[in-house]
Each structure stands twice: as C-alpha cells, then as structure tokens.
C-alpha cells in the first residue's frame, strides 16, 4: 500500500473531485433545483469517501438520511417557496466579499493542515476497518446518554417542524 499510487487512492481522488465540483455546483447554480441536485452528487461523493475509509455503516446512514429524506425535504421546500425565481435574488450584494472571506478561510485551513505534523500510523496495515459491532457497542455504552438525548431532540424537532409548517386555524 505504501509504494506508489494504489487503486484506492485513485478512487479517492476521483470521488474527491466529483464531490468538490458538485459542491461548487451547489453554490453557483443559477437554478435552485439544480443546486439541490448537485447537492445529491456531493453527498454521494461524501458517502463514497466514507466507503473508502471503511466505515460502510456511516456511508449507508448518510445515503439513507441525507440521500433520500433530507433531499426530498429540500426539494419540497424549494417547490413550496418558488414564487419569484429571479436568478439575481440568489446571490447577495456582498458576493465578492464572501468569496474572498471563504478563500481566506480555505487558505488558512490548508496552511494549518500542511504545517502540522500528523502522527499517522507508519503503515497502512495499522489502519483497520471499524466493525459495526464496535460502533454499536460504543453508541450503546459510552454514548448512550447522548444517544437518548438525540432521540428526544429528534422527536422535539419533528413536533416543532409540524407546528411551524402546519397552517393556522384561521388561514382558510
């Protein structure tokens, strides 16, 4: 694995390029539904990188929750709120400033990453896939309280979303 470029690395870079190009598509598309569709491609790229990192469980959860549920919610919202679809309304006045700030952030992050010496394992054989059982044990023993809190949070969020989105009694 250490010598030269392996097939995994090639796949990783392909996925990374797909992911980043789709992400750029999300933030530059002139059509809001296109942005949502690019978002799906970016999510698929992220899921692929999870697969490369040998965490199939997170990859599948990503596809299940983001890929179908979140994307469908977003498409619904886009369809419900597209009264005036002017392309110029998609970008604010401070666009150059925003781009500059984000590029600065990117430079700072990459600089930090390059400047740091990471204590990664010496050889790839030290990187072992994390089994589903390990993840399950961790979630249901060490992280059980956060897990329960997340469950409560989800149900509260569900109620809140229904409250927010449901029409008032006197609406019609």
């Amino acid at each position: 694995m250490e010598d030269g470029v392996t097939a995994t690395q090639v796949v990783f870079w392909i996925l990374a390029v797909v992911m980043l190009v789709s992400a750029i598509g999300v933030i530059t598309a002139g059509n809001i539904v296109y942005a949502a569709l690019f978002f799906i491609a970016a999510l698929a790229g992220v899921a692929g990188i999870y697969l490369i990192l040998t965490v199939e469980f997170i990859a599948l959860v990503q596809l299940l929750i983001y890929g179908s549920a979140v994307v469908i919610l977003i498409l619904f919202a886009l369809m419900l709120t597209r009264a005036r679809e002017r392309p110029q309304a998609l970008f604010g006045r401070s666009r150059p400033l925003g781009i500059a700030a984000a590029l600065g952030l990117m430079a700072a992050l990459i600089g930090g990453i390059v400047a740091t010496t990471w204590t990664t394992p010496e050889s790839s054989s030290a990187i072992q896939p994390v089994g589903l059982q390990t993840i399950g044990d961790a979630i249901f023993t060490i992280w059980i309280v956060p897990f329960i809190i997340v469950g409560v949070l989800l149900s509260i969020a569900l109620d809140g979303a229904i409250m927010l989105a449901s029409p008032d009694e006197d609406d019609n």
């Binding site: 199939e56 599948l60 299940l64 890929g67 498409l75 369809m79």
Partner: peptide, 24 residues
Amino acid sequence: LNLGLLFVFAVLGLNIVGVVMAAW
C-alpha cells in the same frame, strides 16, 4: 454484504430522487 438490509433500503430510497427529478 454484512449490512445488506441497510444497503437495500439506503440505495432503494435514492430512487425517489429520480422520480422527483422527472416530476419537476
């Protein structure tokens, strides 16, 4: 697949994206 069942539902769920694309 060790996560075969999760795989089936995760992947099959994506098919609805195509349906919504066609609809829109």
